[in-house]
Amino acid sequence: MECLRLEHIGQIYHAHNGEETAIRDVSFTVEKGELLSIVGPSGCGKSTLLSIVAGLLPPTSGQVFLGGEPLRGYSPRIGYMLQKDNLLEWLTIYQNTLLGLRIRHTLTPRTRMRAETLLRTYGLWPFRDRFPSQLSGGMRQRAALIRTLAVSPDVLLLDEAFSALDYQTRLEVTDDVYAILKQEGVTTLMVTHDIPESISMGDRVLVLSGRPAVVREILPIVFEGGARTPLFCREHPAFTGYFQHIWKELSAHGETG
């Protein structure tokens, strides 16, 4: 079932020294419960694309549809997780996870319970009264994810959500987050410049070109045998094939570096 659809999205930036096309005619759909990862060179407009879906930036042209209905500006059905965890250092982990609900005026005993359940399920309950600075990078990222999931979004946007972490933590968090997303059944649109990450997490990988960003290819990722986790995928024999395919796709189109 279709959950999110982008139709002919284009974005032009205006500045004093001229205008620049960041995105040109991007269209794709994301199925319900699916994780679509978007991979592309740095600065190709991936984050711009997410900002548009999140309603933070009106597109110059085109239309986003959520559950078949056109999306105009900000929608509470979309959750957005940025590159940094952006936890507020002056609030405890517990208060941080309630922030989204507070801002949306939807903090009720029921939603509070959901946030608490998420904290319990994903191992942060013992740390609820700590401040972010007392937690490891991976735990912080998990807290940020819980803050986003606490508002029960239909679609989750992940914007390079792991790139601020060191490699070791990153692999762990990727596994962690993947498990959480699949368990909660959240439809996810993830942006990354890391090819292995896009393959190991994505049900499909969408390859974007450099500026202006256009869709190069949408590649279904299938790993057979065993329960799929990002680490499992990375060790799977099919992984290298996907990697080389995407690598070629990215470098074949005049990417000079």
Partner: peptide, 29 residues
Amino acid sequence: TDAELIRMARSFGAGRAQIFRYIVFPYNV
């Protein structure tokens, strides 16, 4: 004030008053 924090608040639909209350003011204590 860290622009990323403001972006995060906006991603939850925060208006200017809420951004001030939840982010900008406590950030500037």
